[in-house]
Write a protein that binds this DNA or RNA. Structure first.
Length: 474
DNA sequence: ATGTTC
């Protein structure tokens, strides 16, 4: 992207001014190099989003943004129900409430090292992974509806976790507003035996070590140097994908009736107060609850693996954050708190300390966020700040793709990626070499640069830098 | 991301 077409607001924030049918400007967070490296489609898609009814302040892109289906990945947009604002499928994406759970093993680097191979083997054995992957639990008749409403709380009630896990999940593990009747038979059919499965693509389960503590309050999150953590990155599987697919048609018809122009298929939307948008929100909340239950089931499998290899180890939840959602949240608009519908696609919430909109354990630090690097690179723990409110309390979610999947496939064969990572001492487990090539480190932006831009822009503070020890890829 | 182009 040619940054000379953009107005520099700060060295970490750029603006594409309102033009044509845009109602608000488009703004991109990132340093000059990150913005210059973004594909032009990011601006085109942000301009499309900026033209939607009821959009507030600006259409935003985080420093890890790249083009997505209809709406950039790394995109944020908020809509006001009193200004004919809309709910937009593309602002959530297909993998509803994809997110990251972060666990603490209670172990230090030297304690885990002799058991790493055995642990990775057990993870591979116990956690089903891959496209179309089943092997998750078979739900009894009627049970799925309870999962869709209760989310991770359902899993804990079944004995797959603890109350302490739930205290550290968004909404205590159950997003409100879920109505199972809005989820199609087709979506239910695709769900069969996928609860407790990792999925494919950039989804992973990684053992990580705290390399560097970067904030004096890191201890409040329970993180210290050389601690061994686990990150689980996955989402709502076939069920969430089918909900997205189903509502493209429903929201598309609504958009036509309300005469909202839809330049790209997945940008379909409907007025927040229409029955179609209400139903989409209810179905999306079901997808979010499925994703949170899914991660909770995987946490249970991780604990099972530890029981086999290192019995007695207590694996605790540190936090979880979703990065593909639309949520009703209160935000100040022109000095007054307003209920807005905030879409974050490949972007996470980043409320600062004291915010009533985050779980109680995080009120002193701000919302904790795991920003995943690509496979084999560092990750960061960040926490939200009050100044993130400029971006509707949002920040980046990962390092962000620099190459498309097909470009990455051409660049490096999967076997070479495996060799490179192994030679750096990272244990890789996968059943799918092609997937490894698509997710090669070279296919991603530089995580350090993305995190630095987010920090300099005032969206988040750095709390810790993590390095990978072992990775199970979907 | 995804019953890997319904």
């Amino acid at each position: 992207m040619d940054a000379s077409n953009l107005k520099q607001i700060t060295p970490w924030l750029w603006e594409f001014p309102t033009a044509g049918n845009m109602r608000v400007p488009a703004r991109i967070y990132g340093d000059r190099a990150l913005v210059a490296a973004m594909d032009d489609a990011v601006i085109r898609q942000l301009a499309n989003v900026a033209a939607l009814p009821g959009i507030v302040r600006a259409a935003l892109a985080m420093p890890d943004a790249h083009s997505g289906f209809g709406f950039p990945i790394g995109g944020v947009a908020a809509f006001d129900p009193d200004q004919d604002g809309v709910i937009c499928m593309g602002g959530v994406g297909y993998d509803i409430a994809c997110g990251v759970r972060v666990l603490h093993t209670g172990l230090r680097r030297e304690e885990i090292q002799p058991h790493l191979e055995a642990l990775m083997d057990q993870f591979q054995l116990l956690v089903p992974a891959g496209v179309g992957g089943t092997g998750g639990i078979q739900l009894k008749a009627g049970e799925l509806d309870r999962v869709l409403v209760q989310g991770a709380r359902w899993a804990v009630k079944q004995g797959y976790g603890t109350r302490e896990d739930l205290e550290r999940l968004e909404d205590g593990g159950a997003m409100s507003g879920a109505v199972p009747e809005t989820v199609s038979d087709q979506a239910r059919k695709r769900e069969k035996r996928q609860l407790g499965t990792l999925g494919a693509g950039n989804h992973y389960l990684e053992i990580q070590c705290v390399e560097e503590v970067l904030h004096p309050s890191a201890g409040l999150l329970g993180v210290a140097s050389d601690d061994v953590l686990i990150s689980v990155h996955c989402g709502s599987r076939g069920l969430g994908h089918q909900i997205g697919t189903d509502y493209i048609r429903i929201l598309g018809e609504a958009a036509r009736r309300h005469r909202i122009p839809i330049p790209e298929k997945e940008l379909v939307c409907a007025p927040i107060r229409s029955s179609e948008a209400e139903r989409y929100y209810q179905a999306m909340a079901c997808g979010a609850n499925y994703a949170m239950a899914n991660r909770q089931m995987i946490v249970h499998l991780i604990r099972e693996a530890f029981q086999r290899v290192l019995p007695g180890v207590q694996v605790r939840t540190l936090f979880e954050v979703n990065h593909n959602t639309c949520r009703r949240e209160d935000h100040p608009v022109e000095g007054r708190s307003r209920p807005l519908y905030v879409h974050r696609k490949g972007a996470t919430r980043a409320f600062g300390p004291e915010s009533p909109q985050i779980q109680e354990p995080f009120r002193r630090t701000g919302q904790p966020i795991l920003v995943g690097g690509s496979m084999g690179t560092d990750s960061y723990i960040l926490a939200g700040r009050e100044s993130s409110e400029d971006a509707f309390a949002s920040t980046c979610h990962g390092s962000g793709r620099a190459l498309s999947r097909s470009q990455a496939l051409k660049r490096t064969p999967g076997r070479d990626v495996l060799t490179q990572l192994t030679s750096r001492g990272i244990l890789i487990r996968t059943n799918h070499l092609k997937g490894l090539a698509e997710e090669a480190p070279a296919a991603y932006k530089d995580i350090h640069q993305v995190v630095e831009a987010s920090t300099q822009a005032g969206l988040t503070n750095k709390f810790a830098r993590l390095s990978p020890l072992g990775c199970l890829k979907g």
